[in-house]
Amino acid sequence: MDQLIRLLMRTAYWVRHPPSRMQMYVMAAVVVIAVLCVAIEAFWGWPSGLRVNRVPRDLGFRPL
């Protein structure tokens, strides 16, 4: 199913059956955490200890 149609169907369901107050708090917290992560990445950058280092393809191991 197309992503846009799925989103519109979910939105229509939420209009007919609104989520509880606790679900709304959880969704808001997830959005705030995501925005905070993006802001940290944009202003200070990602810590070098959490970066993924590429492994060379040829490690010298040759199967028989």
Score class of each variant (00 low, 15 high):
A28R: 05
A42T: 14
M27Y: 10
C37D: 06
V35D: 00
L4Q: 15
V52P: 00
Y25M: 15
V52C: 07
L59C: 08
A12S: 14
W46Q: 11
P63F: 06
N53V: 15
L4H: 05
R21Y: 11
T11A: 15
A39H: 02
V30T: 11
V32Y: 06
S20I: 02
R16G: 06
W46H: 11
G45E: 02
L8E: 13
R51Q: 15
R57Y: 08
R57E: 09
V38I: 13
P56H: 04
A42W: 09
A34G: 05
R51N: 10
R16M: 14
S48G: 03
V55E: 11
R57P: 02
R51F: 01
V30A: 12
C37F: 08
P63S: 06
R57W: 08
L36W: 06
P56W: 07
Q23L: 09
D2Y: 01
L4E: 13
A34F: 05
V26D: 03
V38H: 03
L64R: 13
L8H: 08
Y25D: 05
V26F: 03
P19V: 01
W14V: 12
A42N: 08
F43L: 03
V38Q: 09
R16Y: 06
M24N: 03
M27Q: 12
R57D: 10
R6D: 13
W46D: 03
S20A: 09
Q3F: 10
G45H: 00
R54A: 13
D2C: 05
A34S: 06
M22K: 15
E41P: 00
F61C: 04
F61M: 09
W44C: 01
A12V: 09
R10T: 04
Y25I: 10
H17K: 05
I40G: 02
H17Q: 07
L36F: 07
W46F: 11
I5M: 11
F43I: 01
F43N: 00
V35I: 15
Q23W: 02
A39K: 04
M1S: 11
L59Q: 13
P18R: 01
G60R: 03
M24G: 01
C37Q: 12
R21T: 14
G60K: 03
L8G: 04
F61Y: 14
D2I: 03
S20C: 07
C37K: 09
R6H: 08
M9T: 11
M24Y: 01
R6K: 15
Y13Q: 11
R21A: 14
L4V: 14
M24P: 00
W46T: 12
A34I: 06
A29S: 14
I5H: 05
R6P: 00
M27T: 06
G45P: 00
P56A: 12
V38R: 05
F43M: 04
E41W: 13
D58W: 08
L8A: 10
A29V: 07
G60A: 01
I33V: 15
P56R: 13
V31T: 13
V15L: 15
L64I: 10
V32G: 03
P19N: 00
D2F: 01
Q3T: 11
I40R: 04
E41H: 11
G60V: 02
V55M: 06
L36D: 04
